[in-house]
């Protein structure tokens, strides 16, 4: 490839909004989002419901877990999910799964603090 070309050719896909996107474009962490199969319900800010379903000895099992989490009274940004093994995962820390929601919220505070990293100028442009 020629350096003189610049990144222009690379960017055509982005300028078109991307390629290979699914027909249903729910986005993790979008409050009020709900995908059609119900396994993720992001509900109100700070609230997340996980649904685990399996079968055992011919019986159908459904376990629905809802967390409502606040830090200093403010809803947690993003959502938690419970994995089949009972550990808890947070979308913002994609490589972690820890034994409890308490452990996870501690990690969230350690990694992100409790305030957004700046002023959302872009939100003012695209509310």
């Amino acid at each position: 490839m020629d350096e003189a070309e610049g990144p222009g050719a690379l960017l055509a896909s982005l300028r078109q909004g991307g390629q290979g996107l699914p027909a249903t474009r729910a986005v993790h962490g979008m409050h009020g989002g709900h995908d059609v199969h119900g396994a993720l319900d992001h509900g109100a800010p700070g609230t997340a419901t996980s649904v685990r379903e399996t079968t055992h000895d011919g019986h159908r099992i459904r376990i629905e877990t809802t967390y409502t989490i606040t830090i200093d009274g403010k809803p947690l940004e993003g959502h938690l999910e419970v994995l089949d093994n009972g550990s808890v995962h947070y979308h913002g820390l994609p490589n972690y799964a820890v034994p409890s929601a308490v452990d996870l919220v501690r990690l969230v505070i350690d990694h992100f603090g409790t305030e957004p990293p700046g002023v959302d100028e872009l939100g003012e442009r695209h509310p």
Partner: peptide
């Protein structure tokens, strides 16, 4: 970027600084 993605991935955007 937010303009490019507004229609193709509704609900996703960059926050913060321009």
């Amino acid at each position: 970027v937010n303009g490019f993605l507004a229609d193709s991935v509704p609900g996703y955007r960059i926050h913060g600084k321009v």
